[in-house]
Simulated assay, not measured.
Amino acid sequence: MATPLRVLVHGGGIGGLTLAVALARSGHTVEVAELRGELDALGVGIIQPSNALHVMGELGVLDACVAAGFPWEVLTICDQAGATLAKVPQPRMGDAPAGNGIPRPELARVLGEATSAAGVPIRLGTTITELTDDGAGVEVTLSDGSRARWDLVVGFDGIGSPLRTRLYGDRFAPEYTGFANWRVTVPRLPEVQGVVVSTGRTSTKALLTPITDELMYLAAVTAEEEDFRPDPARAHEQLKERLAAFGGPVAEALAAVTSPDGVVYSRISQVTVEEPWHVGRVVLAGDAAHASTPNLAQGAAMAVEDALVLARSLDAADDVPTALAAWEERRRARAMFVQNLSRALLKEETGSPTTPEEDELLKVGMPGAAHVLVEPY
């Protein structure tokens, strides 16, 4: 655009910080409002597939991500006993590695430092309390009492997005899938040189992901009642009960889990905003618009792609409405492909019934999806 924009990013997670950096480097004025009191991310580690790493390269932080994590090129598939069934080389996007495991706090640090270097203020402990879009701009009041007018407000505020509720009410609330994700950080086994996926006779899947030379995380996807929560005193024992049938490296990793400390449990839910992702000059992106199950490990990748493409769309268009329409036209099909195939894989891996449409997607499978997703975003 001929005139730089004023953009408020609601949410200082992976997608929000990526957008802030990309916009600031294009000359726009950006601020981030983040509800948490610090950027340090909760959880354990995260997988950055090659398309996500390509975005990091566009931001100039690829080397920092790789240095803080553990790059890898091959996906290993094992049976429940731990025997290797296949080693599948993963495709690359450009010069980025096929994948990188990284501790979530380290990724938050890398993106936080890039945001600071781009000159973007981050208002911690702050959220939107009032918002009025008059068509030409958005008047916003934040919880710290400050008020300002913005050309665009972008909600990268996660699966529980308060901005989504403000725009659409409860029409697109998170839908629980019936499954949950357990994760815990353990010492890396020497043989775990990339992601290791173990599946078998039960409806449980286990995964090992290296995130540094010294560490990896163990993840398990299990069927759980919606109201189940682990016992804080014996979460590690409950995890071991669910993985009792697994041998090999999963069993070795599990043996290192000797207390409930560090066991992270989260229900797997999905969000699909079926209406346009923007209402006037307020737009949703990432998990706020299209949260997926983790079966393709593409949730964060879709968020950073959303961010970079939105920044480019704003630079290329003559006005905000045209930019938002072009951005969504470019992003929706790709995000829905990831969401729909991820859900189909979850059903297949856990023995749940699939629809004819999901059966068609499953013909693509994880190997095919990896090749699709290293195509330009």
Rank of each mutant, 00 (worst) to 15 (best):
G137Y: 06
E348Y: 02
A136N: 14
S292I: 14
D318W: 02
G368T: 14
G286P: 03
T199C: 04
D227V: 02
G101I: 09
V66W: 00
V264Y: 12
V279I: 14
T3E: 15
V32M: 08
D318R: 15
E34V: 07
T272D: 14
T350E: 07
I268F: 09
E226M: 02
I211G: 03
D157Q: 08
G125N: 12
V7A: 14
L189W: 07
A323Q: 10
M216N: 01
L85F: 06
A235D: 01
N100I: 06
S198G: 07
A323W: 07
G368I: 13
A233M: 03
A24Y: 07
K87E: 15
I268P: 09
L310M: 09
F337G: 00
G99L: 09
S161V: 05
A96G: 12
R147Q: 15
D227H: 11
L361M: 08
T350P: 00
I268E: 11
R104T: 02
T204K: 08
P121N: 12
P103G: 01
A301M: 05
R334D: 04
D170N: 10
A219G: 15
V7T: 09
A2H: 14
H371W: 14
G262P: 07
G286M: 05
A206L: 05
V120T: 13
L124V: 12
S26Q: 15
T141Y: 02
S269C: 11
F228Q: 01
P260E: 03
G248H: 04
L111A: 01
Q339V: 00
P210D: 09
E375V: 00
I268S: 02
A255E: 14
K87W: 01
L152T: 10
T258H: 04
A24Q: 07
D95E: 12
E31H: 07
V338W: 00
D213Y: 05
H371L: 15
A223M: 03
R330H: 10
E275Y: 03
Y168G: 02
S266F: 06
A253I: 00
G365K: 11
E34K: 02
L324S: 12
V195C: 10
T165N: 09
T258A: 13
W277M: 11
R6E: 11
Q90E: 13
A220L: 06
C78V: 10
A289Q: 08
G351W: 01
A300Q: 08
M336Y: 09
E58I: 02
